[in-house]
């Protein structure tokens, strides 16, 4: 079975380490916050200028001046800090954020990522995504392995305008955890009940498959 959105978030959360500062993108990455192990302390970075992003507010706590990068109202955790946009991106560009999780339309064997624009259809802008992929070292891309029509999103070469060049090393899809190195995809783990053949079939770029591919457990 392909992973649910929640399971993708759950698997990503296992990549968190005690003391990490983490930036979570919009969509599935946001769900990761729900699965951070209780025995570790991490602080969430929101690029509009907040470290220590908390859960959604109660009606009583609702504050128009306190939002996240998805423009949703949020709260602050104990020890939070607030700063301006230049400082926020200095943290990102300067490599101070330990882990970045974001979505994508496509990734390719050279670590290129396309996530912000579909010419003629979706031209909303890159927001902070280009800064995040260029500035962060440890990035996990979350997305579905293939489109609804069965077209692979793990390609030999991205077809859409790039968000970043040669910057992605790890991708978690609904079918597999994949590492990108030396111009190839490498299969690290598969979703429960998903066969290696299914993954190969839906991966257009060259995929290296080891003899044993562990199954994720939830």
């Amino acid at each position: 079975m392909a992973l649910s959105r929640e399971q993708i978030a759950q698997r990503v959360a296992r990549e968190m380490r005690d003391g990490y500062y983490v930036n979570l993108g919009i969509g599935i990455p946001t769900l990761v916050a729900n699965y951070i192990p209780e025995d570790i302390a991490v602080m969430l970075h929101s690029e509009n200028g907040l470290l220590g992003m908390g859960q959604f507010p109660s009606e009583a706590e609702l504050d128009a001046d306190l939002i996240n990068a998805g423009k949703q109202t949020v709260t602050m955790t104990t020890g939070a800090s607030i700063f301006d946009s230049a400082e926020s991106f200095a943290m990102i560009r300067g490599g101070h954020v330990d882990l970045t999780v974001l979505g994508a339309f496509e990734v390719d064997v050279n670590g290129n990522i396309a996530s912000y624009m579909i010419p003629g259809k979706l031209i909303k802008g890159m927001g902070g995504a280009m800064d995040l992929v260029a500035g962060a070292d440890n990035i996990i891309v979350t997305m579905t392995h293939a489109s609804k029509h069965g077209e692979s999103k793990l390609l030999t070469q991205c077809s859409l305008p790039l968000t970043g060049k040669g910057c992605i090393k790890k991708v978690l899809t609904d079918l597999a955890l994949i590492e990108i190195k030396n111009g190839k995809f490498h299969l690290l783990e598969r979703a429960p009940g998903v066969t290696v053949d299914e993954i190969i079939k839906l991966t257009q770029g060259e995929l290296v498959v080891p003899k044993f591919v562990p199954e994720m457990r939830f």
């Binding site: 859960q55 959604f56 507010p57 109660s58 009606e59 009583a60 609702l62 128009a64 001046d65 939002i67 998805g70 423009k71 949703q72 109202t73 949020v74």
Partner: peptide, 12 residues
């Protein structure tokens, strides 16, 4: 007015 773009709350 301070309009809110994405009003997200949790039940108390």
């Amino acid at each position: 007015e301070k309009r809110i773009e994405q009003r997200t709350t949790r039940a108390s």
